[in-house]
Design a protein around this nucleic acid. Sequence first.
DNA 1: TTAATTTTCAAACAGTCGTTTGAAGTTGAT
DNA 2: ATCAACTTCAAACGACTGTTTGAAAATTAA
Lengths: 218, 218
Amino acid sequence: MGSGMETGKALETSLRILNAAEILFVEHGFSGTSMRQITGAAQVNIAAVNYYFGSKEGLFQAVFERRAEPFARLSLDKINQLTSSKNNFTATEVAEAFMSAAMEMGSNPAHGGLIFVKLLARSYVEPNPVLKEKLPQRYGELTRRYLEALGQALPHLSSQEVSWRFHFMTSAMFNAFAGNNVMRLFMTQSLVNARDPQLVAQMLLPFIAAGLNSPAAV
Amino acid sequence: MGSGMETGKALETSLRILNAAEILFVEHGFSGTSMRQITGAAQVNIAAVNYYFGSKEGLFQAVFERRAEPFARLSLDKINQLTSSKNNFTATEVAEAFMSAAMEMGSNPAHGGLIFVKLLARSYVEPNPVLKEKLPQRYGELTRRYLEALGQALPHLSSQEVSWRFHFMTSAMFNAFAGNNVMRLFMTQSLVNARDPQLVAQMLLPFIAAGLNSPAAV
DNA sequence: TTAATTTTCAAACAGTCGTTTGAAGTTGAT
DNA sequence: ATCAACTTCAAACGACTGTTTGAAAATTAA
């Protein structure tokens, strides 16, 4: 087995596979991407995937894990930084914490830019068996921390309603940063430019902030 | 070719295929669903799909078209009803119009309930070549009408920013009604119940309304 | 240099894919 | 009852799927 992918040219090969697979998985999904597409784009032999990652599923998991850790750590840092700095933080600040993590991730080419957000947005609707257990493991604590912080900032809302608003917030955010746009889908032109994370965040913040702070529904 | 699918048992067969395919496409995507899965679930011979729909792509198109028309008509009716009833309608009312269409569609089992919204939410991230031209054709005018109405209700915003807010609104809406939930993905429990469209709408409205009416970002 | 290890490669594996075929079965009209 | 049109069916089509093989090539260690 290829346990020594940290030396010489081997690293280059497995890295080329990861990079090619990442793009293809985001674009066409897991089952919509074939081994030969991946190895063709990466310019490696088709057996290299099984050599380095064991299987196609193993490759997908590796593709995901590569980005999941830095994103989770970044998001967790942001919320910890906020909640430990003061007692009376606002819901807007919680949203900013979450968004700044996505922004920094999206602006950093070393972290794949916005690719990982797109992969997350896809996982939103495409229930991958690999992610079914990997995601709660990676983001369970993170989600609980944000829900807790949001509940603390919005004490007039029930925990049920706090969960709903977190749900709405993340939906809008992920799709916004991923560039999943109604107009791109329903019209021929797009009308908005999702390329620049800074601009997305700027447009997103007032919407999310107002939504979170809106009066209770019940 | 099976051009006479409006007589006798033939209708039953093509209908069974449509119903089975709809669920499987939503659950596993286009490339993640095989002909044999579909015909197995529908309990028909595998050749029946090509006989009635020409190809797998043709089937997908038929699955989509069956729900697209009533949804588009419903949404268009709602916005026309609002804009013709008075001159000074609010952004909240525009959001309500859009939401009530999704609600009525989701509450009506004859229209497949929430299945179509899930299919739409999936199309959000999975760029199906069939939909690439079908969606603008079906929803182009609809989108323009809503954007126009939203711009009229929010005259202090630039058309750019109106587009962004429509983008955020629809992202939150589609994922909410489709039940695409962060907590369902990132945690083991879900914390929110997306089964009841009425409840979803009730939770969604104050969030969306406040977001739309928030002060301009620029 | 020799020996051991790691990596690459072309070729083939069994299985599944969407699709087609041609015959058998069914239906309704004359 | 006869005919034509429609629908169903088992079987097979070539192409493609992910994976494995065993030898060649490249790299590393002694």
